[in-house]
Design a protein around this nucleic acid. Structure first.
Lengths: 332, 332
DNA sequence: TTGTATGCGTTATCAA
DNA sequence: TTGATAACGCATACAA
């Protein structure tokens, strides 16, 4: 009952392995009779082709490597769902790697994925990645890579992003329309594409409403809870914000916690908007107004783009950036 | 710069492939001289062994297949972190499959993982799985499988669980010590092991406190939000609960939402305890007291158990159940 | 219509 | 100490 091979079938039916192989692949050269005999026998012994042998032959693994900062983060796990959904439809496997925001681990994961002969890569950059030389190696090896959400500051690569500028603009505009004027913006490390784009959206909204930009209210913040707490405390103590626009799932969570610790502040009419896909946003107190990214769809689109590159055969798919719309969900 | 093989190295250095192979594996039969030449050259051309060829040869894939209901669930993503952490240390890859609580998908995933020649499986059962015949097939194919959290009701398998009975007992006891007497218990489908064990803990605590068990207060509930809402509404309308003990991340989330919709009820002195690893439990309003499972550790232990089976070589590792302690985190 | 031989990258066996 | 060859499972070019 251990793994049956084509050879076993050939022996049992007194045929050659090539005949069996062709019969199983429904080749035109094989008689209906033989085909029937082979497929029926194969079924009866639960034959399943060995994908490893196939991979070795075709030098393809039929797997794609997904590299994300962490999966215990609703945005990323939703994206992964989208990737998963699309990839499995096409018989591809998804192997997930986590960088925990470390460039070194990102590189190690990449090496690892390549060593395993991933056919393609889908990736969202770590918060510490500034070097993109590995892209040359990938090109040399003909391994396509599609970035999503956190993408490199380069034109010559494939990207799927959401319209961060517009999302941040809408979020800020929402706060302004609530009468807020001192809007703190707590955001991810400045190297990230999303950070820059969202900051630009924030600034544009302030400018369009003739509100001066106070640099003290703009804070880059790492993903450790303590950092977020300190940032929040300093803002409240020294800079008198009347509202907060916080980016990323993890930061939103940490900052929310930091705000909770300042009960007196929350008791005032503080407004908070998060750029996040947190599942519990509507259950928090105060309920969190959010800019929600179409995470599942992002995963789908990234995967489809990857497949279009994989199936290009000679034709070259132009480098492109797919931009999806965000949704502002007002809860306060 | 495309993938360098042993053959390429052999040709370049005028050696045979076997010599190169042995030199790279640091075999005792090879002269120090040759070894040095080979390893240095290999490094210079960025040789990485092709794991697919190795897999074909060894009939091992060096990957393990993880099957869970869903990854966008903090409990499962934490467990996966633990698995990931342990597996990668040993050079193993983790391929994740989601069942979305469907038995059919669970079976399909299993087939898929086996077809890909996973060396082992780590699995948490879907909410609709009652048939365990596939275990025989796995045994016949010598594929070890370790279950965690939601495990089969069988003795002859490997399991890693948390002490659900004790966890539920402590949770219920906590509510009783708050003066609660009509404690509603909303829990997962009755087929699941965790459901039975937690129910037993709930009942034991009531019994030990001389509180009669009201069957109307015990509700099995699926994972759709609507179901949870209906359950909550019916309980409140018709059965006068003074507190809730809700099991599973997803159910806790859905029921919390259902409770929020009943503002009048929440305004009373209602106590809620969740059996969940939700990251935002402490940020909810009211803050959610929880029984927290050692999810990461569960993943670690399951993986280590799996490896001990994989490395057993002849020796048989006895079927066993590893039970971890839960933590009651009181927030109210 | 079917069979034979070869190769994918690697290691193990046997020979030299 | 090194080399030639077969084998892992499969697909295919070439023969028959």
């Amino acid at each position: 009952m251990t793994n049956v091979t084509i050879k076993d079938i050939a022996k049992a039916l007194n045929l050659s392995t090539s005949t069996v192989s062709r019969a199983l692949r429904d080749s035109y050269e094989i008689s209906a009779d033989t085909k029937k005999k082979v497929t029926e026998y194969a079924k009866s012994v639960h034959y399943t082709p060995n994908p490893i042998a196939l991979s070795l032959k075709e030098n393809k693994s039929h797997s794609i490597c997904v590299i994300v900062p962490e999966i215990a983060n609703n945005f990323f796990s939703e994206v992964i769902n989208g990737i998963d959904f699309t990839a499995f439809q096409r018989g591809y496997h998804v192997v997930i790697f986590q960088t925990y925001e470390s460039f070194e681990r990102e590189q190690a994961n990449l090496e690892n994925g390549l060593a395993r002969r991933a056919d393609g890569i889908i990736m969202s950059l770590s918060g510490t990645t500034e070097n993109f030389e590995y892209l040359d190696k990938l090109r040399a090896d003909n391994i396509p890579i599609v970035f999503f959400d956190r993408v490199p500051p380069l034109d010559d690569c494939y990207k799927v992003v959401s319209d961060n500028l517009e999302g941040a603009y809408k979020a800020t505009q929402h706060l302004i329309s609530q009468g807020k004027k001192r809007i703190a913006h707590i955001t991810s490390p400045p190297v990230l594409s999303i950070t820059k784009e969202r900051l630009a959206g924030y600034k544009a909204a302030l400018r369009d409403n003739n509100i001066d930009i106070d640099q003290n209210l703009v804070r880059y913040c790492g993903f450790e809870p303590k950092e977020a707490f300190q940032t929040i405390d300093d803002l409240i103590k020294n800079h008198n914000p009347d509202s907060f626009f916080i980016c990323s799932d993890r930061l939103a969570l940490n900052c929310f916690e930091g705000l909770k610790k300042n009960k007196n502040v929350l008791a005032e009419d503080i407004c908070i908007v998060g750029y996040t896909n947190l599942k519990t946003a509507h259950l928090l107190e105060p309920p969190l107004t959010t800019v929600r990214q179409p995470a599942f769809e992002m995963g789908q689109q990234a995967t489809e783009l990857l497949f279009s590159i994989l199936n290009a055969k000679g034709r070259t798919i132009p480098y492109q950036t797919i931009t999806l719309k965000n949704e502002l969900i007002v809860r306060y």
